[in-house]
Simulated assay, not measured.
Amino acid sequence: MRKIPVRAAIVKTASRLFYQQGYSNTGINQIIAEAGIAKSSLYQHFRSKEELLLAYLEETGLQTMDALSNAAEQGNTPKEKLLAIFDYLEILADDPEFYGCHFLNMVYELPADAVRIREQIKKQKDSIRELFRNILAPVDKEILADEIYTLFEGSLVGNKIHNDLWPIISAKRIVKKLV
């Protein structure tokens, strides 16, 4: 069995803990213990907990965009592509291991002065808006990208609040009417 590189083990462990417990509730000592590393190994790769959070957000952002892009590829038309993204979101949110949007969870926890983290989250969210714009471009409806994005984010928030799929299903019905 091949051993996972130390940096990857740290990010993997921190990612799981940040997602399940939240940033504030996850301590460096817990990450070190669960990753099975020495404290010096952690600080060799990350100067602070904030840097580790940035690495988590960057990696999760790439994975999220891959998943959304793959979902969109299930459709042939822009409308089908958008609906496929909401179908994916519905399946994702129905998983018992889904604890909400990685990025929204973090932004709710952060103080206003956590500029670097907020910028990373904004960058990821802007990439989703851009995905919607690109999907809508062939039918000259890019102007709807922000509305679709707002439905997407709102459905995630509603799902977290109500612990139910109806916000995602409702958003998907609106997308059907819009596009």
Rank of each mutant, 00 (worst) to 15 (best):
M1N: 13
I4E: 08
P5I: 04
R7M: 00
V11Y: 10
R16W: 04
Y19F: 10
Y23C: 01
S24G: 14
T26C: 05
G27N: 08
N29A: 05
N29P: 00
I31P: 02
I32G: 04
A33R: 09
A33Y: 02
E34A: 00
A35M: 08
G36W: 00
G36Q: 00
I37G: 00
A38I: 02
K39F: 05
S40H: 10
S40D: 05
S41Q: 12
S41F: 04
S41C: 02
H45F: 14
R47E: 14
S48K: 10
K49D: 05
K49C: 08
E50D: 15
E51S: 14
L52I: 01
L53F: 12
L53W: 13
L53V: 08
L53Q: 08
L54M: 15
A55I: 07
A55V: 07
E58R: 15
E58I: 12
L62G: 14
Q63L: 15
Q63R: 15
T64G: 11
D66P: 02
L68H: 05
L68E: 03
S69Y: 09
A71L: 08
E73C: 03
Q74K: 15
G75M: 12
T77P: 02
K79G: 11
E80C: 07
E80I: 05
K81N: 06
L83C: 11
A84C: 04
A84L: 04
A84I: 00
I85H: 08
D87A: 10
L89V: 01
L89C: 09
E90C: 06
E90W: 00
L92Y: 09
L92D: 07
A93I: 02
A93S: 11
P96E: 11
F98A: 00
G100E: 09
G100H: 12
H102P: 07
H102V: 00
L104G: 12
N105R: 15
E109F: 13
L110M: 15
P111Q: 11
P111C: 06
D113A: 09
D113E: 15
A114Y: 00
V115D: 13
V115N: 10
R118I: 04
R118S: 01
E119V: 10
Q120L: 10
I121Q: 05
I121C: 06
K122D: 11
K123F: 10
K123P: 01
D126W: 09
S127I: 03
S127E: 14
S127G: 05
R129P: 01
R129Q: 11
L131A: 07
F132H: 06
R133F: 08
R133D: 06
P138V: 06
P138L: 09
D140W: 04
K141L: 10
E142W: 00
E142S: 12
L144P: 08
L144A: 11
I148P: 01
Y149Q: 06
Y149F: 15
E153P: 01
E153Q: 11
L156P: 02
V157S: 03
N159F: 07
N159A: 02
K160L: 03
H162K: 13
L165V: 11
L165P: 09
I168C: 00
S170R: 12
S170N: 12
I174F: 10
K176M: 15
K176H: 13
L178N: 12
V179Q: 09
V179C: 13
